[in-house]
Simulated scan of single mutants.
Amino acid sequence: MELRRFETINDYNVFNNNETLHPLVSVVDISKASPRQASNMYFGFYTIFLKQVNCGDLRYGRHTYDYQEGTLVFIAPGQLITVENKGETYQPKGTALIFHPDLIHGTSLGRHMQDYTFFGYQSNEALHVSERERKIVLDCFSKIEYELDHAIDKHSKKLIVDNIELFLNYCVRFYERQFITRDNVHTGILEGFENLLNDYFQTDKAQRLGLPSVAWCASELNLSPNYFGDLVKKETGQSAQDYIQAKVIEVAKEKIFGPNKTVNEIAYELGFKYPQHFSRFFKDRVGQSPNKYRMLHDN
């Protein structure tokens, strides 16, 4: 399958038959593009697709998402995606907001870009917007387009970046709404997370693999680490890492009162490479060393 690399904003504009009005940002009318077939695409800039019709299966990471009307997909610089359409030619439609990292250097958005964790989500974790939300998205895009059509002046960059930031903040709100409306699905994920950790410590996985990481748990649950972390935070009020560490402490306390277990043996069974690391970890979270905790609570 052909690989298309888009290093600059102009590269993508030309591909979609759009004019380049600014070298670092563009609102792209994808319906102007010529009919195309499946391809791999590499993006050297931030890309947000607002898809309005079914136009191929988008794949990045291990998952495919057959995106329909009113779906936003976020792609970070350096990501490779695949559009699969079973060998058929299709006419792409929709709108894309693309902007180069150089545009936001030194701005408030540039300093907080890492907070928009949905750029690390997988395609099957896309944002599904309502018709009302879609209108807000298009209004944000329209304001950016207005500035691009306007003669560039000293206000242009700030207004463009401010409107991108406004759009992304709306997306944070929309994702929070999506977490709530998909609560039944997410409840199953949290149960899966708990079962995954229980299995991890009830078998020899911890001894073989070490302490479970957030990325490993997310992968086992077929989620991206960012989406998984945001979901756990939203549902439990604590980070996925804190959730895992709380489970480690829970299991450690059970093992401390098990028959004939030394602290060193418990440390290795839990996946700690060095017993002293376990002792420090336990004391930091419980307030007592494992031995003192055993002595004070052993009946």
Rank of each mutant, 00 (worst) to 15 (best):
V25M: 02
P23I: 11
Q52M: 14
K247V: 12
S289P: 02
N291P: 00
L159W: 11
D298H: 15
L21H: 03
V185A: 08
A206P: 04
K283R: 14
V53F: 12
L127I: 12
L103M: 08
R294F: 13
S289F: 06
E191P: 00
V129C: 10
K205Y: 14
D284T: 10
S108Q: 10
K253C: 13
F43Y: 15
D115K: 10
L97K: 07
G106Y: 10
H297Q: 10
T47W: 13
N54V: 10
N264M: 07
E165P: 00
T181R: 15
N299V: 14
P259R: 08
I164K: 08
N18A: 01
F179D: 01
S39P: 00
E250C: 03
T20K: 02
F119Y: 13
Y67C: 13
I81P: 01
L223A: 04
P101D: 12
F257T: 04
E165I: 04
D162T: 06
E235R: 15
C140H: 15
H22L: 03
R4Q: 10
R280F: 11
E194W: 06
N184P: 00
Y42V: 09
V161R: 09
Q68I: 11
F282Y: 05
A240Y: 05
S130G: 05
M1D: 07
N16H: 15
L209E: 07
K86C: 05
A246R: 10
F257S: 06
S219W: 04
N260H: 11
A126E: 07
P290E: 08
H297D: 00
L3S: 02
I75W: 09
N184M: 13
Y200N: 07
L159M: 11
P23K: 06
G258W: 05
P225V: 06
Y42N: 05
S224T: 05
I244Q: 04
T64Y: 14
N198I: 08
F282G: 06
Y46E: 03
E235N: 10
L223T: 01
F118Q: 07
D183H: 15
N13W: 07
N124E: 08
R294T: 06
H297Y: 12
Y65H: 15
A240F: 09
R132A: 15
Q288K: 15
G229K: 06
N198Q: 12
Y67P: 01
D199K: 13
